[in-house]
Protein backbone atom coordinates (compact mmCIF):
# COMPACT_ATOMS: atom_id res chain seq x y z
CA UNK A 1 0.00 0.00 0.00
CA UNK A 2 1.66 3.09 -1.17
CA UNK A 3 0.72 6.67 -0.60
CA UNK A 4 1.20 8.35 -3.91
CA UNK A 5 1.99 12.01 -4.22
CA UNK A 6 3.69 14.38 -6.59
CA UNK A 7 6.10 17.24 -6.24
CA UNK A 8 6.21 19.99 -8.81
CA UNK A 9 9.35 21.99 -9.43
CA UNK A 10 6.96 24.45 -10.98
CA UNK A 11 9.47 27.22 -11.52
CA UNK A 12 10.90 25.15 -14.37
CA UNK A 13 7.62 24.97 -16.23
CA UNK A 14 7.67 26.60 -19.67
CA UNK A 15 3.94 26.25 -20.28
CA UNK A 16 4.39 23.95 -23.25
CA UNK A 17 1.41 21.73 -22.32
CA UNK A 18 3.11 18.50 -23.26
CA UNK A 19 1.75 17.17 -19.98
CA UNK A 20 -1.80 17.94 -21.01
CA UNK A 21 -1.47 16.20 -24.36
CA UNK A 22 0.31 13.20 -22.84
CA UNK A 23 -2.44 12.86 -20.26
CA UNK A 24 -5.14 13.02 -22.92
CA UNK A 25 -3.52 10.36 -25.06
CA UNK A 26 -2.66 8.06 -22.18
CA UNK A 27 -5.93 8.28 -20.32
CA UNK A 28 -8.32 8.78 -23.19
CA UNK A 29 -9.42 12.20 -22.09
CA UNK A 30 -11.81 13.67 -24.61
CA UNK A 31 -10.77 16.40 -26.97
CA UNK A 32 -12.23 19.77 -26.13
CA UNK A 33 -10.92 22.59 -24.03
CA UNK A 34 -13.19 21.95 -21.06
CA UNK A 35 -12.13 18.37 -20.78
CA UNK A 36 -8.83 18.19 -19.02
CA UNK A 37 -7.32 16.43 -16.07
CA UNK A 38 -4.31 18.68 -16.03
CA UNK A 39 -3.63 22.28 -16.85
CA UNK A 40 -1.16 25.12 -16.65
CA UNK A 41 -2.42 28.40 -15.31
CA UNK A 42 -0.95 31.83 -15.77
CA UNK A 43 -2.00 35.21 -14.48
CA UNK A 44 -2.23 38.19 -16.81
CA UNK A 45 1.07 40.04 -16.89
CA UNK A 46 1.52 43.13 -14.77
CA UNK A 47 3.12 46.35 -15.93
CA UNK A 48 3.24 48.51 -19.02
CA UNK A 49 5.40 47.67 -22.02
CA UNK A 50 8.37 47.46 -21.78
CA UNK A 51 8.36 47.64 -17.98
CA UNK A 52 6.73 44.29 -17.36
CA UNK A 53 7.01 42.21 -14.26
CA UNK A 54 8.60 38.91 -15.24
CA UNK A 55 7.60 37.40 -11.90
CA UNK A 56 3.94 38.18 -12.49
CA UNK A 57 3.94 35.79 -15.44
CA UNK A 58 4.81 32.57 -13.59
CA UNK A 59 3.34 29.32 -14.88
CA UNK A 60 1.43 27.08 -12.50
CA UNK A 61 1.01 23.52 -13.68
CA UNK A 62 -1.72 21.73 -11.77
CA UNK A 63 -4.17 18.84 -11.60
CA UNK A 64 -6.24 17.06 -8.94
CA UNK A 65 -4.47 17.51 -5.63
CA UNK A 66 -5.41 14.06 -4.34
CA UNK A 67 -6.36 15.74 -1.09
CA UNK A 68 -5.93 13.63 2.00
CA UNK A 69 -9.01 15.33 3.35
CA UNK A 70 -10.87 15.59 0.08
CA UNK A 71 -14.05 17.67 -0.02
CA UNK A 72 -15.11 15.82 -3.17
CA UNK A 73 -15.02 12.54 -1.30
CA UNK A 74 -16.89 13.95 1.68
CA UNK A 75 -19.77 15.15 -0.43
CA UNK A 76 -20.21 12.17 -2.74
CA UNK A 77 -23.58 10.57 -1.96
CA UNK A 78 -22.76 7.14 -3.39
CA UNK A 79 -19.09 6.78 -2.50
CA UNK A 80 -18.34 6.87 -6.19
CA UNK A 81 -15.51 9.16 -5.19
CA UNK A 82 -13.26 7.22 -2.86
CA UNK A 83 -9.67 6.74 -1.78
CA UNK A 84 -8.05 3.71 -3.31
CA UNK A 85 -5.51 1.56 -1.49
CA UNK A 86 -2.74 3.94 -2.53
CA UNK A 87 -4.43 7.03 -1.18
CA UNK A 88 -5.34 8.14 -4.67
CA UNK A 89 -8.72 9.85 -4.96
CA UNK A 90 -10.64 7.90 -7.58
CA UNK A 91 -14.06 7.99 -9.18
CA UNK A 92 -15.92 4.73 -9.67
CA UNK A 93 -17.68 5.29 -12.97
CA UNK A 94 -20.37 2.73 -12.25
CA UNK A 95 -21.44 4.43 -9.02
CA UNK A 96 -21.34 8.04 -10.16
CA UNK A 97 -24.84 9.46 -10.50
CA UNK A 98 -23.65 12.77 -11.94
CA UNK A 99 -25.08 14.91 -9.19
CA UNK A 100 -22.10 17.22 -9.76
CA UNK A 101 -21.79 17.88 -6.06
CA UNK A 102 -18.09 17.01 -6.13
CA UNK A 103 -17.49 19.54 -8.89
CA UNK A 104 -19.08 22.21 -6.77
CA UNK A 105 -17.14 21.07 -3.72
CA UNK A 106 -13.67 20.75 -5.21
CA UNK A 107 -11.78 23.93 -4.43
CA UNK A 108 -9.30 23.31 -7.25
CA UNK A 109 -11.60 22.95 -10.24
CA UNK A 110 -10.06 19.56 -10.87
CA UNK A 111 -13.13 17.73 -12.11
CA UNK A 112 -15.04 17.67 -15.33
CA UNK A 113 -17.79 15.60 -16.90
CA UNK A 114 -16.71 12.90 -19.32
CA UNK A 115 -19.23 13.12 -22.13
CA UNK A 116 -19.03 9.47 -23.04
CA UNK A 117 -19.90 7.91 -19.72
CA UNK A 118 -21.62 11.03 -18.42
CA UNK A 119 -19.76 10.65 -15.17
CA UNK A 120 -17.09 12.63 -13.42
CA UNK A 121 -13.49 12.31 -14.54
CA UNK A 122 -10.30 13.73 -13.18
CA UNK A 123 -6.64 12.93 -12.69
CA UNK A 124 -6.20 9.37 -11.46
CA UNK A 125 -2.41 9.44 -11.17
CA UNK A 126 -2.62 7.20 -14.25
CA UNK A 127 -3.68 4.35 -11.94
CA UNK A 128 -5.71 2.41 -14.46
CA UNK A 129 -3.25 2.94 -17.31
CA UNK A 130 0.40 3.27 -16.46
CA UNK A 131 0.39 2.10 -12.86
CA UNK A 132 -1.78 -0.85 -13.87
CA UNK A 133 0.95 -1.81 -16.32
CA UNK A 134 3.51 -1.77 -13.54
CA UNK A 135 5.07 1.55 -14.48
CA UNK A 136 5.94 3.92 -11.67
CA UNK A 137 5.62 7.11 -13.65
CA UNK A 138 2.70 9.19 -14.81
CA UNK A 139 2.25 10.34 -18.38
CA UNK A 140 2.52 14.00 -17.47
CA UNK A 141 5.69 13.43 -15.52
CA UNK A 142 7.43 11.29 -18.11
CA UNK A 143 6.93 13.61 -21.05
CA UNK A 144 7.79 16.96 -19.49
CA UNK A 145 10.72 18.69 -21.24
CA UNK A 146 11.96 20.42 -18.11
CA UNK A 147 11.05 17.61 -15.71
CA UNK A 148 8.75 19.59 -13.50
CA UNK A 149 7.20 16.56 -11.80
CA UNK A 150 8.41 13.78 -9.55
CA UNK A 151 5.84 11.16 -8.71
CA UNK A 152 6.24 8.65 -5.92
CA UNK A 153 5.34 7.07 -2.64
CA UNK A 154 5.56 9.37 0.37
CA UNK A 155 4.97 6.54 2.80
CA UNK A 156 8.37 5.22 1.83
CA UNK A 157 10.90 7.48 3.54
CA UNK A 158 13.64 6.46 1.15
CA UNK A 159 11.76 7.27 -2.04
CA UNK A 160 12.99 10.08 -4.26
CA UNK A 161 9.91 12.15 -3.54
CA UNK A 162 10.30 11.74 0.23
CA UNK A 163 13.91 12.83 -0.02
CA UNK A 164 12.92 15.92 -2.00
CA UNK A 165 10.26 16.82 0.53
CA UNK A 166 12.82 16.46 3.30
CA UNK A 167 15.39 18.69 1.70
CA UNK A 168 13.43 21.36 -0.12
CA UNK A 169 10.86 23.90 0.92
CA UNK A 170 7.42 23.55 -0.55
CA UNK A 171 3.88 24.79 -0.31
CA UNK A 172 0.45 23.42 -1.13
CA UNK A 173 -2.46 25.19 -2.78
CA UNK A 174 -5.28 26.74 -0.74
CA UNK A 175 -3.66 25.22 2.32
CA UNK A 176 -5.97 27.17 4.62
CA UNK A 177 -8.92 25.01 3.57
CA UNK A 178 -7.49 21.99 5.33
CA UNK A 179 -7.83 19.74 2.31
CA UNK A 180 -4.27 18.52 2.72
CA UNK A 181 -3.26 18.28 -0.91
CA UNK A 182 -0.71 15.71 -2.02
CA UNK A 183 0.63 17.91 -4.76
CA UNK A 184 3.64 19.73 -3.37
CA UNK A 185 5.00 22.83 -5.06
CA UNK A 186 8.71 23.38 -4.56
CA UNK A 187 9.71 26.88 -3.56
Amino acid sequence: MAKYAMVLDYKNCINCKACEVACKEENGVLLGEHYHRIWVGVNPIKGVYPDLSIASNAFYPSQCQHCENAPCQDVCPTQATHYDENGVVQVDESKCILCSYCMVACPYDARYVDERSMTIDKCSFCSDTRLARGLTSTACQATCPTKVRVFGDISDPTSEISMILKTREYFTLKASLGTEPKLFYLK
Binding site: A18, V21, A22, E25, T143, C144, P145
Partner: peptide, 10 residues
Protein backbone atom coordinates in the same frame (compact mmCIF):
# COMPACT_ATOMS: atom_id res chain seq x y z
CA UNK B 1 16.70 13.57 -23.12
CA UNK B 2 13.60 11.62 -22.31
CA UNK B 3 11.02 14.17 -23.32
CA UNK B 4 8.31 14.55 -25.88
CA UNK B 5 6.87 17.97 -26.52
CA UNK B 6 3.12 18.57 -26.94
CA UNK B 7 3.37 18.20 -30.68
CA UNK B 8 5.33 15.00 -30.38
CA UNK B 9 2.66 13.61 -28.09
CA UNK B 10 -0.03 14.61 -30.57
Amino acid sequence: KNMLCPRGNA
